[in-house]
């Protein structure tokens, strides 16, 4: 790790001030992605603004309409939350398959969304449920939040405060792990809500998380695995690497989408 200045503000306003003050500051939430990148010297922020001292940014509130999760809420808290398990079991399941237990004890939902790793799980849930990301400045729809690999709509001095997931009728998440990193080689989040069906894919897209509109249309009419059986996702635009060709990833999207629909609760 390169040397940096460390700050641990007590509230969001102070954190924003620190972000404004330094031009190469980075927010540190759970650190499960940022710190490994810094250790390998792939990231070299001049200032680290550690959010762990800010109270009120974590916690889960569920109503019949939405599950609202504070940005600093850890994966372990989401997976174990009785409210999430009841209202949005697919989200609890998704949280339970992120990383490993020690990573889930530190990693946060806000950190995952802000980082927008193309193989991360939470972006699939946010996009697959049509979540709203609330920052210190505004509310951003998931459809407008993810802007490509590791890119989001967040401004330089913008901090995620919470994420609101509308409670769907049904939702499911299927993840097929990369055998080495155990990130999603492909992950598919499906949901059926009042505005129709959503299908969001992580791990596969060259530009990060994306929706499969053709499947959504079919599932909107008939939310069943059979309804999307014939739909093939084109291999163009899919990640191809040592762990899977573009064709393989495209194929897996179909398999996992059907399984996610079948398992949706």
């Amino acid at each position: 790790m390169y040397a940096f200045t460390y700050e641990r503000p007590k509230n969001v306003d102070d954190a924003v001030k620190l972000l404004k003050k330094a031009d190469d500051a980075k927010l540190l939430a759970g650190g499960q992605t940022l710190l490994p990148a810094m250790k390998l010297r792939l990231a070299s922020p001049g200032t680290i603004v550690d959010l762990s001292g800010i109270k009120g940014l974590s916690g889960i509130k569920a109503s019949s309409k939405a599950v609202v999760i504070g940005a600093l809420t850890k994966h372990v808290e989401v997976m174990n939350s009785a409210e999430v398990q009841k209202s949005l079991p697919a989200l609890a399941h998704l949280a339970s398959v992120i990383g490993d237990p020690a990573v889930r004890n530190r990693g946060t939902i806000g950190g995952s969304l802000a980082n927008n790793d193309p193989s991360a799980d939470y972006p699939a849930a946010a996009l697959g449920l049509g979540a709203t990301i609330k920052t210190n400045k505004r509310e951003i729809e998931a459809d407008k939040f993810f802007k490509g690999l590791f890119e989001t709509a967040l401004g330089a001095d913008e901090i995620i405060e919470s994420v609101s997931f509308p409670v769907p009728e049904k939702a499911g998440y299927e993840k097929f792990r990369n055998p080495a990193s155990r990130f999603a080689l492909v992950g598919v989040f499906v949901s059926k809500g009042k505005d129709g069906a959503r299908v969001a894919v992580t791990g596969a897209g060259e530009s990060g998380v994306f929706r499969v509109k053709e499947m959504e249309a079919a599932l909107g009419k008939d939310f069943s695995a059979k309804a999307i059986e014939g739909i093939k996702v084109p291999a163009k635009g899919m990640i191809a690497d040592l762990h899977g060709t573009a064709e393989y990833r495209a194929h897996l999207i179909g398999v996992l989408a059907r399984r996610a629909v079948a398992a949706a609760k």
Partner: peptide, 29 residues
């Protein structure tokens, strides 16, 4: 390892397992 995967560094912080190679000492204040 240096990619937060092997778990040889796991300790308990406030009762929960944590990879001590992926947490700043400052955060553990």
């Amino acid at each position: 390892c240096d990619t937060s995967q092997c778990g040889a560094c796991v300790v308990h912080v406030d009762g929960a397992a944590v990879k001590s190679c992926t947490m700043l000492a400052m955060t553990a204040d």
